[in-house]
Design a protein around this nucleic acid. Sequence first.
RNA 1: GCGGAUAUAGCUCAGUUGGUUAGAGCACCAGUUUGUGGCACUGGGGGUCGCCGGUUCGAACCCGGUUAUUCGCCCCA
Length: 461
Amino acid sequence: MDKPSLPSGTRDFGPEVMMRRKFIIGIIEETFKRFGFLPLETPAVENLKTLQGKYGDEGDQLLFKILNNGDFLAKADENLLHQRDSKSLTSQISDRGLRYDLTVPLARFVVMNRDKIHFPFKRYQIQTVWRADRPQKGRYREFWQCDADILGSQSISNEADLLQIYDNAFATLGLKVNIRFNHRGILDAFEPWLEGATNHDRFMQLIDKADKIGFEGVLNEITNEAIPNGAEAWTLLHNINNLSSNEEKLTALQNASNIQHEALLKGISEIKHLLSLLNNLPASNTMTLDVTLARGLSYYTGMVMEVVPADDRIPEDFRIGSIGGGGRYDNLTGVFGLKDVTGVGISFGLDRIYDLMDAAAIFPTESMQSTVVLFCCMDENALSSAFGMAKNLRDAGISTEVYPGAVKLKKQLDYANNKSIQWACILGEQEIADGTVSVKNLISGEQKTCPQNQILQQISQ
RNA sequence: GCGGAUAUAGCUCAGUUGGUUAGAGCACCAGUUUGUGGCACUGGGGGUCGCCGGUUCGAACCCGGUUAUUCGCCCCA
């Protein structure tokens, strides 16, 4: 018999893990709802046409593709088959793939349902996505994203809402983070100075690595690749970032002579607007303008945001990238034929948040508990009384189990112990005869015998 | 797509220059205790040492290949 195994980059989530994942999901979902977002789910499988060309060449390679059903090779091109040309053959033998993120399915949904949707459209979506990436620490082939997006509203108040969602959710989770934001307009303003779009794209790719390789590391790479004025531009950004307040950074940007550009003015004014909305609201986490934040080359066109852990309970050596990110993208639905719909959204990286909270050991105990009361019967005759009492407790909202069968008491109490059940209600010959039940507190060891209709009073003391 | 590391019981791992019957802890089962858990003690079940081949009188150990996992790089959450 073959040893059972999992495909690499995928995981089972056992009951203990699921309890904690649900704890996280519950808080994120509750926060989304409290800001007026409504749920959306889309299929795991999308047409490849929907997915391809949306994530760049690299992204296309990372798509999981599904073989067509039936005799899929029969209609395939003879030459391509003979040449073993996998890439060209793919389009002939695979029409569908697994979704790669939640944003493209959202765009597809909005375009297909434009007659039913009222803008601004606020939806959240908590589902699995798949990427055929090489797995490594904090990176999986199957993972979850928790997205909230607003479509069809240009107002910066949406960005303000999203930053508050980050702050609220992580505060409720009990994890300290740093919320960073930037505006693509600020970075776009560097394009003339860097002498063109190609240099600019590469520059943004490189500065995105600052977290990993530091100021010097980025500077070296920029120098190696001889990006015109790259070193100066990077130094300017770095110096601005070292200023202590968001306002000082904005002033410095305004005064930087090499990057004066329409895009910069738009970026600065939108950030000022954002800060004015958030100014008087108390926040649990720091929100800092990080002028080096680029977030890849993807579709972002306005504000970009990112969440990084900042909790001292996380072990020093536990390095993991961002645990959330988002931003504004103009013309989100353009590729599907619906023009001029702007969108802004954020995403929570559930799996990384879990890994962090696990490493920092900050899951509250209530995220672990399930059953509160276990009925232990000494003989089969007691089971029916136990069922009656268990129903009453459940009706009162208390998670209750009746141990299956009248096995040895030691075994039943072991079971309760392993499951961290707080109360054992023991029913033997004596209790049944007297119409009582022995209620034992498994934490203190205390045990009292009481009438069968008074369990609730016993355990709520 | 490229590089490094690892692979021994259900899990985490020991295993001496290559030498008899491959070990520990945890978990599981039973007992000490026929109605009282956590602790302790005693006993028990459990292994194709990833797989294939080679060297050797003899391989968990050395060599080659292969597969899987994992950590980095590219890229990303």
